[in-house]
Amino acid sequence: MNNIKTIVIAMTLLFTLNQLSAQTIINSDPDVNNRVYLRTGIEPATMLTLGYERKFDIGFLNQNIVGFAEFGSSTANFSNNDFKIGGILPVIEKGKFKIVNNLNVSAGSMSAKNFDSKRFAAADEVAFGIYGVKRFVALTAEYENIFLNKIEHSDFYKETYYEDAVDGWYKGAGGRFQFGLEGGFTIKKDIDVYSELKLPFTEKLNSYRGSPMHLNLGIAYRF
């Protein structure tokens, strides 16, 4: 078990260091290197997320990358939260049309009446869109895989439903597709407003059985 913890921590740290040591561009604006943002919406619960992006020059492929880190929390219970880090890289550019890839890993924690869970996931989102300096619109497709959980059942769960429920590390918690539309514009030179609408499905394209759609509104400050 300690091996697993060590690997997860090492992977997370290494990924972080790699992202933070890179360099690039946000929404094609050559004069901006940083952005902080606040996002709220339903994904998958009612969340409030604070994030930071930084532009890096990766030194090859003649491309820039945006590294980001964000912390989101349920508005109903701040102990139910999620931390995500990743990189955003335009993979194809033809004028304002871009195909942009967002690769990220995340760690989440939740506490419920029946159990506590910690989860580790990796995701990749591809956006096909028109990206101008002051506005953008894109179609998105995302896949997230939850590769590891730690689940601990509550006394209530064991006493009321299943006394032999197994606490521990779990694999195979599944994956999720999201298909969506996102867009945004810039006001007053350095304030971005954006929104995202996504339809979630399980990785087997079954009903997600949670919120039928995910909707986010965000505001960001460039500097």
């Binding site: 619960a45 009612t46 349920s74 939740m110 869970s117 979630p200 990785e203 087997k204 919120s211």
Partner: peptide, 20 residues
Amino acid sequence: IGKEWLEEYLIAHDHFTPDG
């Protein structure tokens, strides 16, 4: 929406999906 019981149920979908 916004009540803790429902938020917990929804956020659980980020921890494991209902396939299976």
